[in-house]
Amino acid sequence: MTTDAAKTTDTERSGLPDGSVGSAFAAPVAVGGRPVAAADATGPVGVDARPSGDEERPAAASVIRRGGPGRDRRALTSRRWFRIVGGALIPLALLAAWQVVSTSGAVPVSQLPSPEMVWLAAVDLAERGLLGLYVAISTQRVFIGFAFGALFGLLAGAVVGLSRLGDVLFSPTLGAVRAVPSLAWVPLLILWFGIGEDSKVILISIGAFFPVYTIVAASLRHVDRRLLEAGRAFGLRGATLFATVQLPAVVPSVIAALRLALAQAWLFLVAAELIASSMGLGFLLSDSGNTGRIDRIFLAIILLAVLGKLSDALVGLLERWAVRRWA
């Protein structure tokens, strides 16, 4: 047990990219107080001497992390530039590995196109005016579907979360509808709404609806009862109680739900566009699959990843603001 604890802190410490930074953090503490310095010295050697090592370790570690007074105390991993650079490391490494593997000839180009081929496919599509169109139409579908799905999700979540009767009446049915896989809706929606925009947007709305509905209903049901009672004791009822206590209490989870719903909307977009469409990234995927254009398949996948991540980051900003403001 104790050796395990020592191991975790060791890896934590070596997890810092630069050993000198770690010691620089520790230095002022070691000067400041003898006991802390001793704890710092408790490496794998000192562990045996301390039977209760695993309880005291985390405290000592946090002291070391925080560093001495007067220093910039923000850990390296929470600094902005480090987060950006660190987050870009793996994609860049993947890109490099992709380049090496595809140019070495180990894998045939028909299986793995080079990054350059994918880039050229993008340029080619852009010159024909299709790339922008596909991205735009897919983004539009996602955002319209997301807006409707989230709106209805909020309403249904509020009804089920706030009223017992609503819970009894609607939650079993909605739970059953939620269990239907996304692709199962496609044939029905096409029969009902044709192969135009409506069927796609509705499918995406269904995808965005359920995360919002589920999370909003659950978090409204679990608003702190003591706060609710306090609100009632001070004369709040109905709509004012909702606006004063319940709604602010669930704002952070509502935004987390919207984030999840947006991710879900992108998933359902591809399901909607794979079948019966003439534009969009999902169409690009299925069309390229049929014609064997593996470079375009790669392009579509990369675009979906980048667009999904970008839209998620937007809601993430909103989420950070909301947590600061309401939590």
Partner: peptide, 27 residues
């Protein structure tokens, strides 16, 4: 929830997203 009474609970039960001032105003 009689209007003639006011309750001081065992815990403060303040709304965490409101300032002290706005919490008092709730009363």
């Amino acid at each position: 929830y009689d209007v003639r009474c006011a309750v001081g609970f065992q815990e403060p039960r303040l709304l965490p997203w409101r300032s002290i001032e706005k919490n008092v105003a709730l009363g």
